[in-house]
Each structure stands twice: as structure tokens, then as C-alpha cells.
């Protein structure tokens, strides 16, 4: 296969030992920063930022909802991207990364769905509406669950890993649908107010705490992902050693 001969600079980091060394160097910083910035962001978002003229204090759930929703999509891109690398170049590390990221993404998606539901009750008068944004995020949640279930469905772990990678790639079509659902359809969910061509439609006093919370969520995701990858690699090493012992 010609594809397998294409070398990318990332291949240097596919060496598990080198990856582990770099990850071990990064992890304390991301974890500490996440821990230190989380209270700052939370107080800023919940107490310091001004109340919304329309939604008063109820809008503050946005500071959890929006970062979680962003991370739910970003994590799926991590799963899908790692799956592509795993399928094309057969890097075991990419498989591990995809599998390690999936439950994190499922949790972010669940948080986005639950907080959105709590926010929807006072604002829309209902816990749930079947509009395009909510439905596509629910599909995203099912995709995460399907990925995890398929990964573990085979006796032969590598078969499950690669079947799940194919599913993750198929599921990537859902990501643009989630992102643009509010533009393509007339949804009850409000359109994007941060990433717009004409600049954010939100005043800076509300935008900054949101961006800080998004940063905290990202740092948290990176920390947990690195911990999970480390655990999974240790687990594989243990089972390999066990296998060598019994053989």
C-alpha cells in the first residue's frame, strides 16, 4: 500500500515511549492550570459577569452548557481523527487515543444535553424540543455510545478497535450537521453568538468568562485524556506481560 509509505512529522510522536515522556511533561501543567482556573472562571461566570437583560441570571448556565457543547464536538473530532490515523497508519497509539477520548466526549455531550434541558425549561417552557440542534447532538451522543459498544463487542480486541474506527469515521458526517444545524434550519435553539463572521454578538463582559471556561474545559479534557491514555497503555503492558508469563 502506497499510503503506508507516506511519513508525516507526527510519526515521531507515535513512538509510545516518546509520547509518554512528552505527555508526562505536559500533564501536570494542564491539570494544575485546569484546577487553578476553574474556580476563577466559575466565580467570574456566576457572580461577576453581568446578568442578561432578557434572561436575567438564568443565562449563566451557558457558561457550562456552551463549553461542554463545544468540547462534545471537539472530542468527536479527536476520536474521528485518531481513528483515521489508526486505520491508515495502524498506529496502536492512535487507537488508544480514540478509545480514551470517547467516554470523555460522551460525558461532555451528556452534560451539554442535560444543562441545555435545564436551561430550556425556564426559557422555552419545555425540557426538550425536537429541533435540529438538539436532535443532532442526541445523535452525537448515540454515536459515542455505539463507538464504545462496538469497540468492546469482539473477542479479538484489535478487530473491535478497527471496526469502531470505521464507525467513528462514518459518524464524522454528523459533526457539520451539529455545527450548522442552527443556520440551516429554523431552530428554537439560538444561533451561534461567538464564532460569527461579523464578530461575537455578545458583550466582552460576558464573552471573556465564557472563553475562560472554554479554556478550562479544554485543559480538563487534555489532562483526563492523557491520564486515560497512560492507564490504557499500562493496562496493555500488564496483559502482555501476563500473556508472556502464562505462555
Amino acid at each position: 500500500m502506497i499510503v503506508n509509505r507516506i511519513r508525516l512529522p507526527v510519526h515521531a510522536y507515535a513512538n509510545p515511549l516518546r509520547f509518554q515522556r512528552i505527555a508526562d511533561a505536559i500533564r501536570p501543567w494542564t491539570s494544575l492550570l485546569a484546577l487553578a482556573l476553574f474556580p476563577v472562571g466559575l466565580v467570574w461566570a456566576l457572580a461577576v459577569a453581568p446578568a442578561d437583560y432578557q434572561q436575567s441570571d438564568a443565562y449563566r448556565i451557558m457558561y457550562v452548557h456552551v463549553p461542554a457543547a463545544w468540547m462534545s464536538m471537539f472530542t468527536y473530532l479527536v476520536v474521528g481523527g485518531s481513528s483515521a490515523v489508526a486505520l491508515i497508519w495502524r498506529h496502536p497509539l492512535a487507537e488508544i487515543a480514540a478509545r480514551a477520548a470517547a467516554p470523555i466526549g460522551a460525558c461532555f455531550t451528556a452534560i451539554a444535553l442535560v444543562t441545555g434541558s435545564i436551561w430550556g425549561k425556564p426559557m422555552w417552557g419545555t425540557w426538550w424540543v425536537w429541533d435540529a440542534r438538539l436532535t443532532s447532538v442526541l445523535i452525537l451522543f448515540f454515536l459515542y455510545l455505539g463507538y464504545i459498544a462496538l469497540y468492546d463487542a469482539f473477542e479479538d480486541a484489535s478487530r473491535g478497535a478497527r471496526a469502531a474506527s470505521i464507525l467513528a469515521l462514518v459518524g464524522l458526517v454528523n459533526i457539520p450537521i451539529v455545527k450548522f444545524s442552527v443556520d440551516w434550519w429554523n431552530t428554537l435553539h439560538q444561533p451561534s453568538s461567538v464564532l460569527r463572521m461579523d464578530g461575537p454578538s455578545m458583550p466582552p463582559s460576558m464573552l471573556w468568562p465564557l472563553l475562560l471556561m472554554a479554556l478550562v474545559f479544554k485543559l480538563y479534557m487534555v489532562s483526563v485524556l492523557l491520564i486515560r491514555i497512560r492507564t490504557e497503555m499500562a493496562e496493555r503492558r500488564i496483559s502482555a506481560l501476563r500473556g508472556a508469563e502464562t505462555a
Binding site: F142, L143, G146, A149, A153, F154, I166, L167, G171
Partner: peptide, 23 residues
Amino acid sequence: IGAALLVGSRRSQALTALLVLPL
């Protein structure tokens, strides 16, 4: 796609539904 992903695995039908129905 779902059937091909799960061909040869032990638990089939319910899992196929989980994979396929969202798509």
C-alpha cells in the same frame, strides 16, 4: 454498514440497531 461492522461478532442484532438507527 452496521451489518458489515458486526459480522462475526457474538452480540449482533441489538448492537446493530444502536449503531445504525442514529445514522
